[in-house]
Simulated scan of single mutants.
Amino acid sequence: MGQTFGKPTSNPFQNSSLFSSLKLSSSSHPFFDQNMALRPSIFSTLKRPPVAKPSDFIPLFNDCIAAASSRTQEYLLFKDPEDKFHPSPEVLTQVFLMTYMTQSVSLNLTDTFNCTTMTPEQRILLGADWVWAVLEKPTKNPRIQIAVQVLHLVKREDAEENGASPDACSESVQMAQKESSNNNMYERLVDFCASIGKDCYALFLFLGRKNDKGNIYGVLSNNFEAANGKCKIDRVFIENFFKGSRYLHTPSGMMQAIVTKKAEDNLTLMIKFS
């Protein structure tokens, strides 16, 4: 089964009506079709593996995002009656990322759509908290990349900057900070994506916004570098994309737009993740 039938060297079943009806006689049979040996058996098509579509992973990605967003919202919306519990921006980022990764492993998504977290040094140098990548098969080389930088409510970010980070005193982190001191975190992410090309997107992920503290939004583009030299790339610049925006994509809509985009085309989207 699954193999092509060739010419038999002998035919002990020549008188069998079953084999005569299948025309599997010897080469001397007057009705033998020489092209038959070149044709694949009908049985070889029965177990043909399904051809993977570029968008097959999108529903699984959407499930992972839904789980991560829902879990993170519990912390964004929680109010401690005693006003003692205040999750830091770092904790909120880790809650989102760990929930996403747990779900992606359980759904066997990692062979198609990978997630790579950055070290403290990489986060400073590249401006990314993690990088998502659509993988080619069978090489598993990244075909499309999305570098994610998490943004929090301004008060939370100010508290994080004023607090002491356990990694802040390490020599490697201090060297990374010195190396990247010329650009802010937003500009580093934009530069990183631009250095790779149009198949690398910068995604600024907002865990809460000024007028909507309990939801998660995003601004994604492979063309932020067009603003270099024209205006400053900072939080105000990113948030301005929401002004006048009539449509917010879903996570699955965002990913569908990415995988169907023509090469070298620009793409900028606003997304609601929760």
Rank of each mutant, 00 (worst) to 15 (best):
Q14R: 14
Y100W: 14
N114Y: 15
T112S: 14
Q174W: 01
T45C: 01
K23R: 08
G253P: 09
C169K: 12
E121H: 07
L109P: 12
Q34M: 07
S70H: 04
C64Q: 10
S55I: 06
S17K: 15
P50F: 13
V150T: 09
K210T: 09
G229P: 07
S172G: 01
I58K: 01
C231Y: 15
Q149N: 09
A128I: 00
E179Y: 07
P8D: 04
G214F: 02
R209C: 06
L38W: 15
L189S: 05
Q145L: 00
P59W: 08
S104K: 06
L46E: 12
S20M: 06
S180C: 10
Q256F: 04
A227N: 08
I124C: 05
E264T: 09
N183R: 14
K232M: 13
V154M: 02
T119W: 13
M36Q: 15
V91Q: 15
L107S: 09
Y75V: 01
L76V: 00
F78E: 10
R71H: 05
R71A: 03
N162W: 11
N223D: 12
L92N: 06
N141P: 01
W132T: 03
N108L: 10
D167C: 10
K232I: 14
N222P: 11
D234M: 07
S70R: 03
N222S: 08
V134F: 01
N35H: 09
D212A: 11
S27E: 02
V105I: 13
I144Q: 03
I146V: 09
A37I: 15
Q145C: 04
R48S: 08
Y201Q: 03
S21W: 07
A257H: 13
S88H: 06
P166D: 11
F241K: 12
P251Q: 04
E160P: 04
S181N: 12
F85G: 05
R123A: 11
N228A: 09
A147E: 02
I58E: 00
L126P: 02
D212G: 04
A133I: 01
M101A: 10
A133Y: 01
T139Q: 15
A194E: 09
K210W: 11
R156A: 05
F19E: 08
L153Q: 02
S27I: 04
S28T: 08
K232R: 15
F224V: 05
N266Q: 08
G2H: 13
C64E: 14
A176D: 07
W132G: 01
Y201F: 15
F61D: 00
G244T: 08
Y75K: 03
R188P: 05
H29C: 06
E157L: 00
